[in-house]
Simulated scan of single mutants.
Amino acid sequence: MLAVIDKNECTGCGACVDEKECPTNSLSMGTEYSVVDKTTCTGCGACVDVCPTAAISIHKAT
């Protein structure tokens, strides 16, 4: 499982990056929106719960 950012919905607020519940610190701020490190994300969903625009969802890793 993997967190996926909807670039059309992400406002770049940083709430997911600031989320201290992410056990792998897999989120960072890009130039306009949040970015997920696909090599470390476990799809735990902590970032989904804090996103105010519902721009993050969990998908099966491909």
Rank of each mutant, 00 (worst) to 15 (best):
N8T: 15
K60M: 14
C47V: 05
S57L: 10
P23C: 00
V17A: 12
L2G: 02
G45C: 02
V36D: 04
P52H: 10
C10N: 07
V17M: 12
A55K: 07
G30F: 10
C51M: 12
A15E: 13
V35Q: 11
T31E: 14
L27V: 10
T42A: 01
P23D: 02
G45M: 01
V50E: 04
S28F: 06
Y33V: 12
T62N: 15
P52Y: 06
M29F: 07
I58C: 05
S34P: 11
V35R: 13
A61T: 12
A46T: 12
T62A: 15
C44A: 03
A46N: 05
P52L: 09
A3Q: 01
A61N: 14
T11H: 08
N25Y: 11
A61P: 04
L2V: 12
C13H: 08
H59R: 15
I56Y: 02
K38Y: 13
C22G: 01
V48P: 01
I56L: 08
A46S: 15
G45Y: 02
E21R: 14
A55W: 05
K60N: 14
S34I: 00
T53G: 07
C51T: 08
T62H: 13
I58E: 03
A3C: 01
D6G: 03
D6W: 03
C16R: 04
G43I: 04
T53L: 06
S57R: 15
D37M: 09
S34T: 12
T39D: 15
C41W: 01
C22K: 00
K38V: 14
C22T: 00
G14C: 12
N25T: 11
T11F: 06
G14A: 09
G14E: 12
C44N: 00
C51P: 11
V50Y: 02
G45T: 01
A54F: 14
T11K: 13
K7E: 14
E21P: 00
K38A: 11
H59Y: 08
L2Y: 02
N25I: 03
Y33T: 09
Y33N: 12
M29Y: 10
A15G: 05
A55E: 05
T39R: 09
A3K: 01
G12T: 12
L27K: 07
T24A: 10
K60C: 08
D18Y: 11
Y33A: 10
C44W: 00
T39K: 12
V17K: 10
P52S: 14
T42F: 02
T31S: 13
V35M: 11
T24H: 09
T11A: 13
N25W: 08
A46W: 00
E9G: 05
I5C: 04
D49F: 05
D18I: 11
E32G: 05
V17E: 08
G12C: 11
